[in-house]
């Protein structure tokens, strides 16, 4: 007797989840379908099956701006690569110091680091802009990359500290008895063991930097230096009412790397937020 209600409840739950999943996916699918539709069809129906498929939007979009869209993809890739390397090196070094070294002022610095996790960038953006423009760094990628080389993404320092604390200290001791100094212990013992934390950092840095709009908008004003988000938004500016399809096509292109990162790194993404996020 009790089986029937349970089965139907489970069926209802599944149906609900599938419906919700469709609602969640609708904007993404609509974007992809719109990128394949002729311009005069995009705004006519909510449906997701195009009457005719045309790939020409992609060609049009690729060449619609001052430089081919690939140029902006490369710019974004350079920024992302710089930020990933910066975060991996600087945050892991800071995390090793916080988790394993006993130095004067450690507690104070650690508290300061936690305090900066939620610090909005808007509070420092004006003086930072002045600083970087005094250094003549506007319209270079340096204002975007150099802060990462200086471990300003405290979130990742914290994530790595948490991870290193979970590694057995006996490993360090053993290496020390073998005569290894701190640089050696860090490079040979700790780093190889913290690959999962490094992977989480890589994938989050990748996605956040790729999507970041605020600082790229401020520091990159020369169209030659535009990254993908800034280039895409100049699309909105320049679009004559007829090239919607091209704009959606480039939107799809710009989200592809995120989508791939999600597929490859889903495990690390989910575990990453779960570990840092939890009590």
């Amino acid at each position: 007797m009790t089986d029937l209600p349970r089965a139907s409840r489970s069926a209802a739950k599944h149906t609900g989840l599938i419906l919700l999943g469709l609602v969640m996916l609708y904007p993404v699918i609509w974007m992809v379908v719109s990128s394949l539709r002729p311009n005069n069809e995009i705004f006519r129906s909510p449906g997701l099956v195009p009457d005719s498929v045309q790939l020409s939007n992609y060609g049009d979009g690729w060449t619609a701006l001052a430089s081919p869209f690939g140029h902006y993809l490369v710019n974004s890739a350079i920024v992302v690569l710089g930020c990933v390397i910066g975060n991996l090196v600087s945050c892991s070094m800071a995390a090793y110091a916080f988790a394993r070294l006993d130095f004067t002022g450690r507690k104070l610095f650690f508290a300061t680091m936690l305090g900066t996790i939620m610090l909005p960038i808007h509070v420092i953006i004006v003086p930072q802009y002045i600083l970087f423009s005094e250094l003549d760094w506007i319209n270079t990628f340096l204002p975007l990359i150099v802060p990462k080389l200086l471990a300003t993404d405290a979130f990742f320092v914290f994530l790595m500290v948490q991870f290193i604390r979970g590694l057995p200290r006996e490993l360090d001791e053993a290496a020390r008895i073998d005569g290894a100094g701190h640089p050696r212990i860090f490079l040979r013992v700790i780093l190889p063991l913290m690959v999962p934390a490094l992977a989480t950092t890589t994938i989050f840095t990748f996605i956040w930097t790729w999507n970041d709009f605020f600082s790229q908008l401020i520091y990159l004003t020369d169209p030659e230096m535009y990254t993908v988000p800034v280039a895409l938004r100049s699309f909105v500016d320049s679009t004559v009412a007829t090239s919607w399809g091209a704009m959606f096509a480039m939107s799809v292109v710009s989200l592809l790397p995120i989508f791939l990162a999600f597929l490859v790194g889903q495990r690390y993404l989910v575990k990453g937020i779960a570990t840092t996020g939890i009590k």
């Binding site: 600087s90 070094m93 471990a151 300003t152």
Partner: peptide, 20 residues
């Protein structure tokens, strides 16, 4: 240990001062 601590922390310290 102090020296090592500050060496490992130097990028972060620089960032804390210069960027934040």
């Amino acid at each position: 240990e102090n020296l090592a601590g500050y060496v490992f922390l130097s990028p972060w310290l620089l960032g804390l001062m210069g960027i934040t």
